[in-house]
């Protein structure tokens, strides 16, 4: 049974605290177990390197100029993909948001492509753009475009008619309608659009590079895993995962702050 709200604060905080302790214990336990199993030979080190080796490989990678170059190339492809995909997505979303007719005609097809494995179009990108960074960037932009459109439109759907009515009744001009009503109400969707935009620009570039590329992290991973250098593969994966998780946590925090006024959790539309 729920406690009255006045008394609920303290136990809840204590629970959160012990939960985070247990969580840390689980994570540390799993890493320790993994290390031990590899050390005593239950797991073959060629298939899954011990955590200590992964950390060592990570330090190696960070100092390796070839790896740095690969990270730099991939990073610039991701940035390019994000800029292209997001600006195209914003443009299309605003056009669809402005016209109900356009929205009804094309939102369905866009949603269909959204949950389609976009990798099936990879051959077309390779044919047109070749194996260089542009190919990966174009595919990343293609991936992120659909997420941006769907999320921005979802955000515009959060704009409430009654708030627009208040704006009219209190003499708002067009610029006020956008700045004071439409933008703040649609913000969760726009925020989500940027998040999924960068996330899928990243995933798209990675997929394209794993598929076929003459440089970047994708080929690096392929080379290391073909040479059974599992520790290096895991080190790369772990590095990128850490970046992704930290970015995700920061994003959630920023979003919560931006939407402090919202009583319920902000609605994000596409979550794949």
């Amino acid at each position: 049974m729920r406690q009255p709200s006045a008394q609920r604060g303290a136990p809840r905080q204590r629970r959160a605290h012990s939960a985070s302790l247990l969580r840390s214990a689980i994570v540390i336990g799993v890493i320790l177990l993994w290390e031990i199993l590899v050390r005593i030979g239950v797991i073959d080190g060629d298939f899954l390197s011990a955590p200590t080796e992964v950390v060592r490989a990570m330090a190696d990678l960070l100092g390796d100029p070839d790896a740095q170059e690969a990270f730099r190339r991939t990073g610039s492809s991701i940035l390019l993909a994000f800029v292209m995909g997001t600006s195209a997505g914003l443009f299309v979303a605003l056009a669809l948001g402005a016209s109900r007719l356009l929205r009804e005609a094309f939102l369905g097809p866009i949603a269909f492509v959204l949950s389609t494995p976009k990798s099936i179009f990879l051959p077309i990108f390779t044919l047109i753009f070749g194996l260089g960074g542009m190919s990966a960037a174009a595919f990343g932009a293609f991936e992120s475009f659909f997420y941006v459109v769907v999320n921005v439109i979802g955000g515009l759907g959060l704009v409430e008619q009654r708030h627009l009515k208040v704006a009219d009744a209190f003499g708002a001009r067009t610029v006020h309608r956008y700045a004071d009503v439409i933008l703040p109400a649609a913000l969760p969707g726009i925020f989500a659009a940027f998040w999924y935009g960068i996330k899928h620009a990243f995933l798209g570039v990675m997929i394209a590079q794993l598929w076929a590329s003459d440089g970047g992290i994708g080929p690096l991973i392929r080379t290391y895993s073909a040479a059974l250098k599992t520790d290096y593969v895991l080190a790369i994966v772990l590095l990128i995962t850490i970046v992704a998780v930290v970015a995700g946590a920061l994003w959630t925090r920023a979003e919560t702050r931006m939407n402090r006024w919202r009583s319920t959790g902000a609605a994000t539309v596409a979550t794949i």
């Binding site: 009515k165 704006a167 009744a169 209190f170 003499g171 006020h176 004071d180 939407n259 006024w261």
Partner: peptide, 30 residues
């Protein structure tokens, strides 16, 4: 024209993203 006739709506329709004082100042801001 709110300086001539100002509304109080049934569902309040305050802007949830603005503080109370900024809500009260909405029309002046416009």
């Amino acid at each position: 024209k709110p300086s001539r006739a100002a509304f109080v709506f049934q569902d309040y329709s305050l802007f949830p993203w603005r503080s109370v004082v900024d809500n009260a100042a909405t029309g002046l801001r416009f």
